[in-house]
């Protein structure tokens, strides 16, 4: 089970700014451990953000994204109290979905 994300979303003048901090190792599959064995790739592949039930962002992530990724984006619409759901899936099939109310 993956650790929770920290999501902050604030609406101002009809635009919502979302900042997401994800907890993930984001292993590239290119690194070796101290005994020389390759550390298997383990990274987020897809991320979506939904405002209520409307898809506002769909992104494809890859091994070049850092450990514990940080993502900030803005979308038109959204009001205080609305629901925002951010979800990701990684290459091992693990997933995480967190929800916040827009502030």
């Amino acid at each position: 089970m993956a650790s929770p994300m920290r999501i902050r979303a604030a609406a101002k003048d009809g635009v919502t700014e979302v900042r997401v901090l994800m907890s993930h190792v984001m292993e590239t599959g290119q690194r070796k451990d101290s005994s020389g064995a390759v550390i298997p790739a383990h990274f987020i592949t897809e991320l979506t953000a939904k405002h209520n039930d409307r898809l506002v962002l769909a992104a494809e992530f890859g091994p070049s994204v850092s450990t514990n990724p940080y993502l900030a984006f803005k979308f038109a619409g959204g009001a205080k109290g609305d629901k925002l759901v951010v979800s990701w899936v990684d290459n091992k099939g693990d997933s995480r979905s967190d929800e916040v109310q827009i502030a």
């Binding site: 650790s3 920290r6 900042r19 901090l21 907890s23 450990t67 514990n68 940080y70 900030a72």
Partner: peptide, 12 residues
Amino acid sequence: ADGNPAELLEME
């Protein structure tokens, strides 16, 4: 600083 991942540790 805006997305300081220490926040994840803080939550933990």
